[in-house]
């Protein structure tokens, strides 16, 4: 029984890539393969153009300094202060004490923990501990940050603030982020692309919005339904009189009164049966289930008009 099989994944430089899956899907194993905490029995792992599986132990240790990692349970040294925890990975560097102190100060500012440098982890909240974890992971100026269920032990509000911090880091420092989670909310808030895993395989992969609006696999639909109501007209027992269509739109279109303007010119009217209007990372998007009432000439004209103006319309 292989923990992973047939996994082929390329994460682009500078993107935030999310892997979602239920526990046991193999996402944690996959993440650990990236810094070889878990060594694949077959296959290759390459980070920043360097093949890791062929490196000697010493070379691997050097490479790992450029791959930061944060954890669900933070994994801080309980015997060290916040300052010493953040400075910990710098023990391997040749930086002078003064430079280490200055680097830690920078990181404290970045994660917003000024004033807590002398605290011990036991005195911090979960969110603060994860901030220490993030600062520690960034100490050696890594190119990649691996996040192992980094928000799963946090409450929703704290999760939000940690995700915002990760997004900032990605934008300010250009660090590539690879994260795993079982919460679709995390994927929706910060990821550019997503891979869905099940049984050690990647079953769906693509732009977050694309996967979100058109999930193909059942597992993906389950995850999507965590954050948006799935649309199932039949299951709700509706008996619409007119034509039921699903309209997907995104970006600037979300701010235009397209539907109203299109219907206005005809004899037809519409009813919104269901809808989601929200935001995916920084992109506004919407999905509406609309029933168009009117004669067939008008309704087909409306559908055509909507498509013409850039909306994704499908008749259900």
């Amino acid at each position: 029984m292989d923990a992973l099989s047939d996994v082929n994944l390329t994460v682009e430089k500078g993107e935030i890539f999310g892997i979602i899956g239920h526990s046991g899907a193999g996402k944690s194993t996959l993440l650990r393969c990236v810094n070889l905490l878990e060594r694949p029995s077959l296959g290759s792992v390459s980070v920043g153009g360097h093949e890791l599986t062929i490196l000697s132990e010493k070379e691997l240790q050097q490479r790992r300094q450029k791959i930061g990692m944060i954890f669900q349970h933070f994994n801080l040294l309980s015997t060290a202060t916040v300052r010493d925890n953040i400075a910990f990975p710098l023990k391997m560097s040749t930086l002078s004490k003064e430079k280490v102190r200055r680097r830690v100060d920078e990181l404290l500012d970045l994660v917003g923990l000024r004033g807590h440098e002398q605290s011990y982890p036991a005195q911090l909240s979960g969110g603060q501990k994860q901030r220490v974890g993030i600062a520690r992971a960034l100490a050696n100026h890594p190119d990649v940050l691996l996040c192992d269920e980094a928000t799963s032990a946090l409450d929703p509000h704290t999760t939000e603030s940690i995700l915002t911090l990760l997004k900032d880091i990605n934008q300010k420092l250009g660090i590539t982020i690879l994260l795993i989670t079982h919460e679709m909310n995390v994927i929706r808030s910060i990821c550019d692309r997503v891979a869905v895993m099940e049984g050690g395989r990647i079953i769906e992969l693509g732009e977050v919005l694309e996967v979100f609006l058109n999930p193909h696999h059942k597992t993906t639909r389950d995850f999507v339904s965590q954050v948006a109501e799935t649309v199932d007209v039949q299951a709700q027992g509706l008996r619409p009189e007119g034509v039921v269509v699903r309209i997907n739109y995104q970006g600037d279109l979300a701010h235009e009164p397209i539907l109203f303007e299109t219907v206005k010119g005809t004899e037809a009217s519409f009813v919104i049966l269901q809808g989601t209007v929200s935001r995916m990372k920084d992109t506004p998007y919407g999905q509406l289930i609309v029933e168009l009432r009117g004669n067939s000439r008008d309704t087909s004209q409306i559908i055509e008009q909507l498509r013409h103006r850039g909306l994704d319309v499908s008749v259900l």
Binding site: Q61, R63, I67
Partner: peptide, 13 residues
């Protein structure tokens, strides 16, 4: 805590 050992390993110690 095994996690702390793993974190140190991931840092390249």
């Amino acid at each position: 805590d095994k996690g702390v050992l793993e974190a140190a390993q991931a840092m390249g110690f």
